[in-house]
Amino acid sequence: MKECEDTGIIKTIRCIVCPTGCLIEVREDIEGKNTFQGYTCKRGLEYAQQEFFEPKRIMTTTIKIDNAIHPLLPVRSNKPLLKEKLNEAFQIIANTTIKAPVKMGDILIKNITNEDVNIIASRDMEKK
């Protein structure tokens, strides 16, 4: 996403729904109403609206695990969380250690940044 200096266009979003990579321009009128231009499909428009109003990402990382065959367990968020909250979430996870065994899908951290998003295990991991 890039900020644009051109008046009227307040943001340009590169669409990643398909490899075509349409450039979608977001404009704002005097009343603060936003319009989207440059998309070539409905999914593209939806993507651009989400990206503009409330960008969210699935987060994938690892968490420290005790007594397992590896020192780290891969984890993910069960749904996308606000992009601006990502770093906070990474820090919370960095400061947490769990215990083996776990099963894929086990909830490890509930409601991590108060957005109703949980951190879940990405795989099974046995005890050592």
Binding site: T62, K64, L72, F90, Q91, A94, N95
Partner: peptide, 14 residues
């Protein structure tokens, strides 16, 4: 892995 994030937290006092 995690050490740099923990340092960030330490700096924030968290």
């Amino acid at each position: 892995t995690k050490d740099l994030l923990l340092t960030q937290l330490l700096e924030k006092g968290n």
